[in-house]
Design a binder for these strands. Structure first.
Length: 548
RNA sequence: GCCCCGGUAGCUCAGCUGGAUAGAGCAACGGUCUUCUAAACCGUAGGCCACAGAUUCGAAUUCUGUCCGGGGUACCA
């Protein structure tokens, strides 16, 4: 409807003011006013035209409205002109009632697009190195990445979820050494955990498993690769199972090591050297990032001959770009925001089309306990694991919690609150609405209403009913917004609003009554709400329960 | 120093590309279950939208500056 009105206004001003406006595009808006008195839709077009036409906005509005009224537009009941020059449109119930029928007819496909049909998109997220269990911070990214993937899938894209990790390098050597220390600890040997090593208790658990498997075979016998491999395998397994508990499954686990093995690292470095964007200094190879707007040049290969993370990152993205994806989406934490521009610059140097790459940055999660901030460090083992969080509040709450906030905003996660208020958590509010609807439909069958296909939606005229239908008419715009911004939060907000409207309706009106005609009409309404609910909850990855 | 986020009710956050009386949840106080689940609903209270300027018919929203918080600015990932 909003699009119809926009078109209508555009056509109208072209007809009346074509000469004076001269095909300039007027940047006017159509919005849904907060106040019902201002109609269903409101446009500021006359206000915008006033400066161009150098005329009183009220007079311009009057001209426009007169012209529109000649056209006798269906669905539009009334048009009003108000104070400074707003044009307000009042839509008749008929239009909204038809939406219910449409939803029932199209079901899950209602407003579904095929924007992404035959398009492949890769979403890279989490990508934590296997040095410890996933933390709450990783949780935000995991949930966000999966929800973004689901939004894309809903729009018809073929999505590959990918996890990029590295089981080599300094960090992993420290991990291996730390495991060895803990293993020896089980024999009563007190060795020092290396500086910057991993002190978390989970290493002790792994050491125990290691002991169970190998016995004393590696006592006083530190074989680095054995310890690293064992720790990696174990941690990666637990990471996968944590993600699985959130219904998140990656299609591809990409090990950075393969880039060394297949020569992509060398190839990338060579290409960059040939392009003349590198130089040697102090025994290291540098990337002239200052030429691309950075404040300092960056090291690609250390004087030790070992690449920094930057070179593999570049090689990895170059490799992604050769995999014929139509879009590549990277989800990173705020700590990465400084590094990805370098990757993009490097790719441009090598003549890749970087417009396919879209980077989403989310802000950090701050863990709060008793109003005190807790610092999270995987290395020190001072963190609350994602697993523990799922134990406490469950999958649905975890997912909803991370989705309900804008990714640009810092997230405060209060542990005490999460434990205390599981019953008052907003996610139950949504699920409860869905469960109530299911229950009513069940109840209607007990009352011998076996089918309500012949229900007449024209009977839906109560304010609470119309409000719900109006909100459902916004569904299309919400889904569009989610797709363009890739911000699942909008969907969570929408669902909350829809729940609220439903609960209000439920409180005031009974669905199943002695009036069979009305009962059937209302059953149609709630069934359509249920469809929308199930759809949205599915995209957010939250269960839509039949009972609670 | 420079770069990226944020600063809205006691707390956690919405507020779309500027619009007409600033919104929700939690917390506080008061009310509503013989009738489809009270995990709900209704009401009360609570705001100089960090601060100062600028643009505009009109700014929480755009721009500039200042202050405060988080992150980055590694030959760590």
């Amino acid at each position: 409807m909003i699009y119809t009105i926009k078109q209508l206004l555009e056509n109208t001003i072209n007809e009346i003011f074509s000469e004076s406006v001269n095909n300039q595009s007027i940047d006017f808006s159509i919005e849904r006013p907060n106040n019902d008195k201002h109609g269903d839709f409101s446009s500021n077009i006359a206000l915008k035209l006033a400066s161009v036409l150098k005329n009183n906005p009220m007079i311009i509005a009057k001209n426009i409205v007169e012209e529109i009224q000649k056209k006798n537009v269906e669905s539009v009941d009334n048009i009003e002109i108000v104070k400074p020059g707003f044009i307000n449109f009042f839509i008749n119930n008929n239009y909204y009632q038809n939406i219910v029928e449409k939803i029932l007819l199209e079901k899950d496909d209602y407003q579904k697009t095929n924007i992404g049909k035959n398009k492949k998109v890769q979403v890279e997220f989490v990508s934590a190195n296997p040095t410890g269990p996933l933390t709450i911070g990783h949780g935000r990214q995991a949930v966000l990445g999966d929800a973004v993937s689901r939004i894309l899938e809903w729009n018809g894209y073929e999505v590959t979820r990918e996890y990029y990790f590295n089981d080599a390098g300094r960090q992993m050597r420290l991990l291996g050494k730390s495991l060895y220390v803990r293993y020896m600890g089980l024999f009563g040997e007190k060795l020092e955990i290396p500086t910057d090593g991993y002190e978390g208790e989970y290493i002790i658990d792994i050491a125990q498993l290691f002991l169970n498997k190998y016995g004393e075979k590696y006592k006083n016998n530190f074989v680095e690769t054995v310890f690293i491999d064992y720790a990696t395998e174990n941690l990666l397994f637990s990471i996968k199972s944590t993600l699985k508990r959130l219904d998140i499954v990656h299609d591809v686990f990409f090990n950075e090591k393969t880039l060394y093995e297949n020569g992509k690292i060398d190839e990338t470095l060579k290409k960059m050297e040939q392009s003349g964007v590198t130089y040697k200094s102090d025994g290291a190879i540098w990337f002239k990032t200052t030429e691309f707007g950075a404040e300092k040049d960056r090291v690609l290969v250390k004087s030790s001959g070992e690449p920094t993370y930057r070179l593999p990152d570049i090689a990895y993205h170059a490799q992604k770009l050769t995999r014929d994806y139509d879009r590549i989406i990277d989800i990173f934490g705020a700590d990465h925001h400084a590094t990805y521009p370098d990757v993009i610059s490097a790719l441009k140097v090598m003549n890749y089309d970087t417009s396919k790459i879209h980077v989403l940055i989310h802000q950090f999660v701050t863990l709060v306990r008793n109003n005190e901030k807790i610092k999270m460090s995987t290395r020190k083992g001072d963190f609350v694991t994602l697993d523990k969080l799922i134990d406490i509040v469950g999958k649905d709450v975890v997912r909803y919690f991370f989705i309900m906030r804008n990714m640009d905003s810092h997230l405060n996660f209060d542990i005490e609150l999460a434990q205390k208020e599981t019953d008052e958590n907003p996610v139950y509010y949504l699920q409860y609405a869905h469960a109530r609807i299911s229950n009513i439909i069940k109840h209607s069958k007990l009352k011998n209403i076996n089918s309500f296909d012949d229900g007449n939606v024209k009977l839906l005229v109560e304010k609470e009913e119309v409000d719900i239908m109006k909100l459902m008419s916004e569904y299309k715009e919400i889904m569009k917004l989610c797709h363009t911004t890739l911000e699942p939060m909008h969907l969570a907000n929408y669902l909350h609003k829809l729940s609220s409207h439903f609960h209000k309706f439920y409180q005031k009106h009974r669905v199943v009554t002695d009036n069979e005609e009305l009962s059937k009409a209302r059953l149609k309404l709630i069934k359509s709400i249920k469809i929308i609910f199930a759809n949205c909850l599915n995209i957010l990855g939250i269960e839509a329960p039949e009972n609670m």
